[in-house]
Amino acid sequence: MRIVFMGTPDFAVPSLRALAAAHDVALVLTRPDAVRSRGKKLEPSPVKAAALELGLPVLEAKRMEPEVVDALRAARADVFCVAAYGCILPDEVLTMAPLGCVNVHASLLPRWRGAAPIQRAILAGDAEAGVSIMRIGHGVDTGAFCAQASCSVAGKSADELTSELAELGAGLLLEVLPELAAGTVSWTEQDEALVTHAAKIQKAELRLDPAVSAADNERRALASSDAAPARCMLAGKPVRVLAARVAPVSGAVLAAGELAIQGGRVLLGCGEGALEVLELKPDGKRAMDAAAWAAGQRGAAVTWEALS
């Protein structure tokens, strides 16, 4: 099958690799090079890097300009496959390929339509997350879906869950394409009564807070990223919490806002329960495990608080 692939972030890379191994990928469309790390240098998208490694033709575009539409038409693809490309596709593009345009979306639709479905699933405490193979329609993730796969959420970071769902999505996409070509795919319209929206994560949402439960703070740490890190004040100094978990119930109960160091363990009292910090990065310093940080806290204040 001849395919045009559209995608940009790491989530899309397994789908591209799977398609390239099984089909003829005529063109890869991705967002232009951008500053993606602290080095302040332009870097290719993960999809562009993978496409070049695979020897596939790449076109960079942040919108559907006439020359981009012409290139898509010239590719003469049977189907367009999309995974987190990051650009609205006009009707002309959606109907260009004979088999249409299918999208790998990182949620169990109709739950979590939108930009941040994986992080929203973590923050909401969902037991399961998943991927859907869907048609692209006029609204945001409103199209019918034809296949879904799921995995557990508990204890997984956003990066870990993204990697797992990306692989699930790639496998599901490969399963669907022969059925799409044969015309045997069964589409399910989304139940609008069950829709939830996955708005982009704001930095303030992931700040740790002694007023909320340890479980909520754990989920914020798991959902955090470089763009929206889990931050707080420990012993009067700002830090990023890289890994944390709800502490087992043992010993004295910590009051909300109390910080305890017990045998190298760093425990934070919350509105309900306690959070154990496993790894952190003080501002201006390297990342370190909790025991290393605790060793340098002699005489420090034994409180913690939310960043203002």
Rank of each mutant, 00 (worst) to 15 (best):
L56N: 10
D70E: 09
V153H: 00
V239Q: 00
A223G: 09
D24M: 00
L177P: 15
A199H: 06
V185Q: 06
N103T: 12
D91H: 12
E218C: 09
E205T: 10
G169K: 07
G284H: 12
A244N: 11
A51K: 03
A230E: 14
V58N: 04
D70A: 15
A77G: 04
D216H: 06
A166S: 14
A256R: 07
I136Y: 13
P98N: 12
A287V: 01
A199V: 06
V131T: 04
V4C: 03
A214Q: 06
V13P: 12
K285C: 04
T142D: 14
L280H: 12
E128G: 02
Y85K: 13
E164A: 13
S45C: 06
W112I: 00
S224V: 01
D289Y: 06
R113K: 09
L275F: 11
V176E: 08
D10E: 15
A274D: 12
R76F: 01
A256C: 05
E53A: 14
L280R: 05
D10G: 09
V35L: 02
R73S: 04
L174P: 00
M134F: 02
A127D: 09
V25Y: 04
G257Q: 11
V140L: 14
V102M: 07
V13Y: 05
K156M: 05
V28P: 03
H105L: 10
